[in-house]
Simulated assay, not measured.
Amino acid sequence: MDKASIIEKINGFLVEEFEVDAEKITPEANLRETLELDSLDYIDLVVVIETNFGFKVKPEDFLTIATFQNFYDYVISKVSEKVTS
């Protein structure tokens, strides 16, 4: 799966699961503010990631994720690790 496909898939489930306008999802936008995430929403986000991409998410991984670009980079790196292992 290439980067563009991963980003497209991420944006698709964010729009569907978190009911956010696709136009608000830009690489530089703040993930937490745009999706209006609370602690329960983070759990939902983790479940959606694990279900869609097949890797385990550690809570501490989210400490460095501020923007959608950070989030894309995180998922892309985890998918790449999974493919190479």
Rank of each mutant, 00 (worst) to 15 (best):
A29M: 02
L31A: 04
V83N: 13
P27N: 12
S85T: 04
G54K: 11
D61F: 04
P27E: 14
E33I: 02
Y72E: 11
N52L: 04
N52R: 12
V15G: 03
S39D: 08
K78W: 00
A66L: 07
N11K: 03
S80D: 15
I6N: 07
F13P: 07
E60T: 11
P27T: 08
F71G: 04
L40V: 02
I43F: 14
F71D: 06
K58A: 15
F13E: 12
S85I: 03
T84K: 12
L31V: 01
F55S: 01
D41R: 06
V75R: 05
I10M: 01
E33V: 00
S5W: 07
A22L: 13
D41H: 11
T64I: 09
V57N: 07
S5A: 13
L37K: 04
S39P: 05
L31Q: 06
I65E: 08
S85R: 10
V15M: 05
D21V: 03
F18Q: 05
I6Y: 10
I10S: 03
I49A: 09
A22F: 07
D38G: 12
T51N: 14
E16T: 10
N30H: 11
N70Y: 12
S77A: 15
E81M: 13
F55C: 01
Q69I: 02
T26S: 14
D38C: 10
D21Y: 01
F53N: 06
V57T: 08
S5V: 06
D73W: 01
D73C: 01
T26A: 15
V75G: 00
E33N: 07
P59I: 06
E33C: 02
F68Q: 04
E17M: 06
G54C: 11
V46D: 11
I25K: 00
K58E: 14
V47W: 11
L45P: 04
N70P: 01
F62K: 03
L14R: 01
S5C: 07
D21F: 00
K56H: 00
L45R: 03
Y74N: 11
L45S: 04
T84W: 09
F18Y: 10
K24Q: 14
L31K: 02
V15S: 05
T51L: 10
F18T: 05
F68K: 04
M1T: 10
A66I: 13
P27K: 11
M1Q: 09
D41K: 10
V46E: 11
K9C: 13
I43C: 08
L37P: 00
D44P: 00
I25A: 03
D2K: 06
V57G: 05
Y42I: 01
F71N: 03
E16G: 03
V47L: 14
A22K: 14
F55G: 01
D44S: 13
N70H: 15
F53T: 06
T34Q: 11
T26R: 15
K82N: 10
F55P: 01
D41I: 02
D73E: 09
F71R: 03
Q69C: 06
E16I: 00
E50V: 05
I25C: 02
L31E: 09
K78I: 00
F71E: 07
E8K: 10
I43P: 03
L40W: 05
N70M: 08
I49M: 12
K82M: 12
D2N: 15
Y72H: 12
S39N: 04
G12W: 01
E28D: 15
D2T: 08
